[in-house]
Design a binder for these strands. Structure first.
Lengths: 235, 235
DNA sequence: ATTTAATGTGTAAAATATACACACTATCTT
DNA sequence: AAGATAGTGTGTATATTTTACACATTAAAT
C-alpha cells in the first residue's frame, strides 16, 4: 500500500453518529469506506468540511452524500482534537448525533463512490471502526443515554404511532435496564405530552394495544414552563 | 484602518470562558485585545491552535499565555463553526469553560503582548465582546447553570474552606434565584461530601460560621455508585 | 371452547421536597 | 456592662414523588 495520500495541514471534518431502533435493538448507521485510508473498514459517516459552509451544514451535507438521509435533526456533542487521530495530517473533527426512525426513511444508500455501502449495525457488538470512530461512537452513546432521562429524544426513534410497550422497550434497550410496566406508563402519561389515538395496533396475534403519538407542541409548552421554574437545588 | 491582515484558509482556535466568584458575584475572565482585528476590544481569552498540539492542550497553553493561569481544569462545551465568525478567514473555534477560585491564584496578567490586560468582569452587564464571543459566553453560562444542578462544580469557585452561607450565595448567584436556608443546608449535608471542619470563620463582626470543605474522594464514591444505579425514567 | 400472549390497571408504603420562625452567639456601640 | 446589630443554626408537619407489586382482560390461533 504505497499510495501517496495528500497531506492535510489543518482541516476540520464532521462525523455523524446516527442511531436507529429496529427489531427491539438500538442500531447505529455505518458506512464501508471505499477510499484510503482505511479502505474497506467500517466507519461513521463523516468527511471534510468545506470552506464555504458552516460545520452544521457540512454535517448535514456529508450525511446526505454518504447515506442518502436528509432533513435529520443533528446535534453537536463533542469535538475531537488529538494530534494523531488522522493519518493524513491534522484533522479536527466535530461529532454530531441524531436519532431517526429506521422505517420512516427510504433505505439508506451512499450517493458518492466514497462509501461502498451504508447499513445499520447493532450498537452492542460493534466491529472495530476506522480512525478513532469507536471512541467517537462511545461518547455519543453515553450522551444519548444520559439525555434520554430528561429530554424526549426517544420519540425520534419510534414510528409516529407507537404503543406504550414499544416505548418502554426502547427505553429499556437504551438504558440497558428493566423498567416496571405500571410505573413507566404512569410516569410517561403524567407528562401529558403523549396523545392517545383512537386507533389500535394491527396484525398482532394477541390483544392489540392502543396507539399513541408524541405531541411536540404540548411538550414544548410543558418544557418551557419547566425551564422557567428550573434550577432547583433546594427550594 | 487599512492594515493588511493575514488570511486564514482553515484553522481552528479555542476560546476559554473562565468563571470566578468574588464579592458575591459571578465573574468571567476577559482580556483586552492588543492586536487587530478588534484591537482594544474586550474578548474571551483565545487563540489559534498549533499543528503539533491537541486542542485540549492548546486551550490550556493559550489561557496561560493570555492570563497567567495554569493547571485549570477546563471542559469543552461547544464548537462554533459558522463561516463568517472571523474577519480574517475561516476559523472554527472550540469553546472551553472552567470554574476557578479567584483568590486562590496569583493575580491574572497576560504573558504576551497579544493581550493588553486580563481582568474579571461581572457576568451581568457584560460589554459587547469581540467576534462572536458574546454568544460563546452565553452558551457557556447556560451550560454551567444547568450543570450546577447535578454536578458539584460550585466548589471549584469557592475557597477551600467555606461556610454554608457562602455556598448558598454562590448557588443563588449562578441560578439567579433565592433558596431556602434550612432546606439548602439539609440537602447539601445529606449528600455526605461536605466535611465539617473544626474551624470557624474569622474576622466577621457577628457570630462566626462553621467552615466546611468539599471532600472530592467521598463525592466520587457516592457519584460512582449513583452512576451505576443511574438511568431511571421509571423504576 | 381452550390456549396463548400480551394489554391495561390501583394501592399502599417509603422517600423526598417543601414551607415556615425563632433562639443563639459574637462583635460593636455607647 | 447593657443593649443593639447581624448573621448562624436548627425541626417539624405536609405535600409530592417514587417505588414495589399481581391479576383480570382481550384478541387471535388452535
Amino acid at each position: 500500500m504505497d499510495i501517496q495520500l495528500p497531506h492535510f495541514d489543518s482541516v476540520f471534518s464532521t462525523d455523524c453518529v446516527i442511531f436507529g431502533f429496529e427489531a427491539g435493538e438500538l442500531k447505529v448507521l455505518l458506512i464501508e469506506r471505499n477510499e484510503e485510508p482505511y479502505q474497506g473498514w467500517y466507519a461513521l459517516p463523516g468527511n471534510i468540511v468545506g470552506l464555504e459552509e458552516s460545520v452544521d451544514n457540512a454535517a448535514a451535507r456529508i450525511l446526505y452524500e454518504l447515506t442518502g438521509l436528509r432533513d435529520i435533526h443533528m446535534r453537536q456533542f463533542h469535538t475531537f482534537g488529538e494530534v494523531n487521530r488522522h493519518p493524513q495530517g491534522r484533522v479536527v473533527t466535530v461529532g454530531y448525533f441524531a436519532l431517526i426512525r429506521i422505517g420512516g426513511q427510504k433505505e439508506v444508500a451512499p450517493l458518492t463512490h466514497f462509501a461502498r455501502k451504508a447499513f445499520w449495525h447493532p450498537v452492542n457488538d460493534l466491529p472495530k471502526l476506522a480512525f478513532d470512530h469507536t471512541e467517537i461512537f462511545q461518547r455519543a452513546f453515553k450522551k444519548i443515554r444520559v439525555k434520554m432521562n430528561y429530554e424526549p429524544i426517544a420519540f425520534e426513534l419510534l414510528p409516529e404511532k407507537f404503543t406504550l410497550t414499544q416505548l418502554q422497550n426502547l427505553y429499556e434497550a437504551v438504558l440497558n435496564k428493566k423498567l416496571d410496566k405500571r410505573n413507566f406508563r404512569k410516569k410517561m402519561l403524567s407528562y401529558g405530552f403523549l396523545k392517545e389515538l383512537m386507533e389500535k395496533q394491527k396484525g398482532v396475534s394477541y390483544r392489540a394495544a392502543k396507539l399513541y403519538k408524541f405531541d411536540r407542541r404540548k411538550y414544548q409548552k410543558i418544557f418551557q414552563t419547566e425551564l422557567a421554574a428550573q434550577g432547583a437545588v433546594a427550594s
